[in-house]
């Protein structure tokens, strides 16, 4: 059981890191423990930590805690983990089988950097137009979107605080849009900035937070909400710094 419990914890931890809701992870862990004959499993998960205790029929008790750092969104891995946890529940896999499948899932590729770069550019340009911008706004938003991807890349390499990264990005976006305006490509920075703000805004965090909150996982939900609010504030702060330092050039 000890080996299996390790596997279950690993799966749960990765699900959380890949962006699953707390409710979902707790449910999966409970089911997997039950599938291996646990009499009772107590699972407590918030976005930054998980505590699980399993009680086996032979009176042995196992507890593990995991500290979770850095939650992102990787649906492909999440899909794999989800499938694996279903498999574990329906057919008894040996710890070795679970391990090898788990390793395979962790090695799943993410899109290469250049594809991500195009995605950033497409999102920024699309939303510049979406919110009423013209082609020139889209073009400027597109270029800035690409630069934002590289700022994020450098920030990640330096393992910079996520919220501070948003602050920096927001400042950079507004300043670069101003450059675009001064060069005469666009009449106002609004649409180009909005397109890029869509890249930074914590829309998913907010909805996931509220989903957790209303599902009864209040602490996890609140943590996610606070993070979303802080991120929004960081974006505003970046814009504020821009207005204070360069706002005069806007007129």
């Amino acid at each position: 059981m000890r080996k299996i419990f390790n596997c279950i914890m690993d799966i749960g931890e990765q699900m959380l890191i890949c962006g699953a809701e707390v409710h979902r992870v707790e449910d999966s862990i409970n089911r997997m423990c039950a599938a291996f004959g646990a009499e009772r499993s107590d699972v407590f998960i918030i976005t930054s930590s998980m505590v699980v205790t399993v009680y086996m029929p032979d009176e042995s008790v196992y507890t593990q805690t995991r500290r979770i750092k850095g939650i992102g969104t990787d649906i492909e891995k999440l899909h794999g983990l989800n499938r694996l946890s279903r498999e574990i529940c329906s057919e008894k896999l040996t710890p070795e089988q679970i391990r090898s499948e788990f390793r395979e899932i962790l090695n799943l590729r993410s899109y290469p950097l250049w594809v991500e770069c195009i995605a950033y550019m497409a999102v920024a340009a699309a939303f510049a137009v979406f919110f009423g911008g013209g082609l020139s706004d889209a073009a400027v938003a597109l270029v800035i979107g690409c630069i934002v991807r590289f700022i994020v890349l450098i920030a990640d390499k330096a393992s910079m605080n996520k919220i501070f990264t948003k602050f920096l990005c927001s400042f950079a976006v507004s300043s670069l849009a101003l450059v675009g305006m001064k060069l005469g490509f666009i009449d106002s920075i609004d649409k180009a900035v909005i397109g890029n703000i869509m890249l930074l805004i914590p829309g998913v965090g907010l909805t996931n937070g509220l989903r957790d909150l209303f599902a009864g996982d209040s602490i996890a939900g609140l943590l996610r909400l606070i993070e979303a609010v802080l991120t929004a504030l960081a974006i505003a702060a970046g814009y504020f710094l821009f207005v204070v330092t360069m706002g005069g050039a806007l007129k």
Partner: peptide, 14 residues
């Protein structure tokens, strides 16, 4: 544009 934006995010979410 909403479709393209969603597609972009879908790629970023892998």
């Amino acid at each position: 544009m909403g479709f393209i934006g969603s597609l972009g995010f879908a790629i970023l979410f892998n």
